[in-house]
């Protein structure tokens, strides 16, 4: 029974850790499918995390924090769009600029507003997204296997986890079954085809990066007001890049990307449980090396040991009408 509890709690952590990663990866999905490089996920998430925590700390409302996070991250998206869509700048450089600005600005503002050396105050329970117990969780618990699975792993998360869960099939539906999805996929493959069909390429791409900002805002708010209880300097710690790696791994499709996020989250959840534990045959692995596990995993996966992924053809190239 101990083993089962251990596994259930591992899966429970996996779900918690996967949610922000998947929200960010989905943000990357909309951006890159439209042909705009999403290396800016890290900065947008960080901006969202800070905006959410700062607003929640002041107002005491997690929802207002979420709203602020979405606005902050969408503003970052607009900046990325301005540089890479309107001015056809180098999208990689633009994204790195956004990540750098977010890193500096969140630290400066946090310090100036709260005087806590770059963090926000700890949030009270009301200013955070609390856990929700799904209907019948306790009633079903006695059922063998499925009962505890439902009660421990599926139930008992905050609302943002369920939003992320709903967004997965919804995004797949949008991408493949809606007009917007058709145009989104087209503009990332061949913007000239979209343009000659009488559809504005910049408008479509701006819509995509704004959706990307919206989702990054939720992901950021998740980090600081659902998973954590406040903002800490550079609290994303590379999660934006991990999300992008998950998107690549998922071959730019929503559901496989979800699977990749779950894999990363599983490694992360396992990682915290391995600390201080003697692994048979190896002994106790140093904590620093265990912490590097998700990053090493990312490098290995990106190196194509799971098959080469083909990105949207127009990603990273500004659209210039050219004859």
């Amino acid at each position: 029974m101990d083993g089962l509890i251990w596994i259930l709690s591992l899966l429970d952590s996996m779900v918690r850790l996967a949610a922000p990663l998947f929200l960010a990866a989905l943000a990357g999905f909309y951006s890159e499918r439209a042909g705009v490089i999403a290396l800016d996920l890290e900065g947008k998430m960080l901006a969202g995390a800070f905006a959410a925590a700062a607003t929640a700390a002041v107002t005491g409302s997690a929802w207002l924090g979420l709203g602020a996070a979405v606005i902050a991250a969408m503003a970052m998206s607009l900046l990325h769009g301005f540089a890479s869509i309107t001015h056809r700048g180098d999208q990689v450089v633009s994204a790195v600029a956004i990540n750098t600005i977010a890193l500096g600005l969140t630290a400066v503002l946090a310090n100036a507003w709260f005087g806590l050396g770059g963090r926000t105050p700890n949030l009270e329970a009301g200013a955070r997204f609390g856990e929700i117990t799904l209907p019948l969780a306790e009633t079903l618990r006695p059922l063998p296997l499925l009962g505890p699975l439902y009660a421990e792993v599926i139930s008992g998360h905050n609302i943002l986890v369920y939003i992320a869960a709903v967004l997965a099939p919804l995004s797949a539906w949008i991408a493949y079954r809606s007009r917007f999805g058709l145009r989104l996929r087209a503009v990332g493959e061949n913007p000239a085809a979209v343009d000659t069909a009488g559809i504005s390429v910049p408008a479509l791409r701006y819509q995509a990066v704004l959706i990307s900002g919206f989702l990054c805002g939720i992901a950021g708010a998740y980090l600081s007001t659902a998973q954590g209880a406040g903002f800490q300097q550079n609290m994303t710690a590379g999660k934006g890049y991990l999300a992008l790696a998950a998107l690549i791994l998922g071959k730019w499709r929503p559901l496989p990307t979800l699977a990749a996020c779950l894999l990363f989250a599983f490694a992360d959840a396992l990682q915290t449980r391995l600390q201080g534990v003697a692994v048979p045959g190896i002994g106790e692995v140093p904590v620093q090396l265990i912490e590097a596990l998700p990053y090493v995993l990312t490098v290995l996966l990106l190196a194509g040991f799971v098959g080469r992924a083909v990105p949207p053809k127009a990603v990273g190239t500004p659209y210039v009408k050219d004859r």
């Binding site: 079954r177 493959e189 000239a192 085809a193 069909a197 053809k313």
Partner: peptide, 23 residues
């Protein structure tokens, strides 16, 4: 001016979808 990863029908639809839902 074709999207190579799309089917012929999807290419024809692009810009002339006739509704927000493709079905």
């Amino acid at each position: 001016m074709l999207v190579e990863t799309f089917t012929v029908l999807e290419n024809l639809l692009l810009g002339h979808e006739g509704g927000a839902v493709l079905g």
